[in-house]
Design a protein around this nucleic acid. Structure first.
Lengths: 189, 189
DNA sequence: GTAATTTTTGAACAATGGGTCAGAATTTAT
DNA sequence: ATAAATTCTGACCCATTGTTCAAAAATTAC
């Protein structure tokens, strides 16, 4: 990716996360980057395209991380543990992306639907792991749907937790350990 | 509340939930209700005021429900169970309100901050229950912060679950039971 | 029935925002 | 050095939006 394009990409990510898609104007993005309007439209065909680009990059990152970190684990509960940890790590490192996703998935407009599609795919992936874990007797019996949605819910709760402790620096290991201790561990059969 | 005002209130709630605050125009709201623009501005001083009004009403409802349903329970884990159930019930009955809240709390703009303030108060309330439950030995030891945030996360996961099963009608009792079985029950000491 | 009050109307206004484009500046190729 | 291709600029366009207001309509009070 071009240097200018990357700058526009990063400024958009930050602004979309802070103020939302609609409330962020093209003018604001270009002012932040320090280029003229035309430059933005040279690199991206529309505001919408910036957004799509953003989401695709983020999803790619999340999926890859999960694939790498869970691939070589044998036990399916350990896979879930790994997912929770990655979720927290991504949240801390790419908070803007997670913020955008969590802001966008709830509505009914096309943009929401698009984001939701990705999130559903992600949860589906978790669900497969839960199902297999149950089948193998490594995870307690239960509705894999609900459990997978619940594990996604931990992204929300982690971000909320992070926001509630904005002043202090959040300790990934501690948050992960506490979620593990209070919720995940209990999924062991 | 006036009949016309109520109609405006309800249409706004629905539209804000579906399309988001910024993407919903005054014109759209008034067209939905079937009144002229001026009528809206007779009942509300601004778009922002509609939003604030909306959030306050919803929060009032949620807090009251919780106070009533947990008040006469002795055991603190039962209180948490009741909260989860109420969360699901409110979600099904007032989905628009929950959708608006979940869309709004993640950003950094004044509107997000306001919504977040309410959500933090709500989580705080859960946290107090968790703390007391731990003190009394009815709930396992753990970080009350994380557990309370986690229980809030179940609102997110329930809405996600609901959206993933849009076609079928969601069964409150079942969803509640599954969350109880997989997550809440395990908090018992 | 008339006056006073409340409620509704919709045209008009000012501001903002996404997007365009012809030309300038810069970089790359020959 | 010159030509070609790439990248950048910012004034301009047009549609949209939140808000206002003087006048009309409807309701209430006397």
């Amino acid at each position: 990716m071009n240097k200018t394009k990357r700058k526009i990409f990063e400024a958009s990510m930050k602004l979309f996360a802070e103020k939302g898609y609609d409330a962020t104007s093209i003018e604001e993005i270009t002012a932040t980057v320090g280029v003229a309007k035309g430059t933005l439209y040279y690199h991206f065909s529309s505001k919408e395209e910036i957004f799509n680009f953003l989401i695709e990059e983020g999803v790619k990152l999340l999926k890859n991380s999960i694939a790498i970190k869970t691939g070589n684990l044998e036990n399916y509960l350990d896979k879930l543990r790994a997912i929770v940890l990655i979720q927290i790590k991504i949240l801390v490192k790419y908070e803007s992306f997670i913020t955008i996703i969590l802001s966008q998935i709830w509505g009914n407009d096309p943009r929401s639907q698009m984001c939701r599609k990705y999130v559903f795919e992600y949860i589906q992936m978790i669900e497969e792991i839960v199902k297999e874990g149950i089948k193998r007797g490594e995870i307690i019996e239960g509705d894999a749907n609900v459990i997978a949605s619940g594990i996604f819910g931990f992204i929300c709760s982690s971000l909320i937790y992070k926001m509630r402790h904005e002043s202090e620096e959040i300790d990934i290991a501690t948050l992960d350990k506490e979620i593990e201790k209070s919720f995940i561990r209990k999924l062991k059969k």
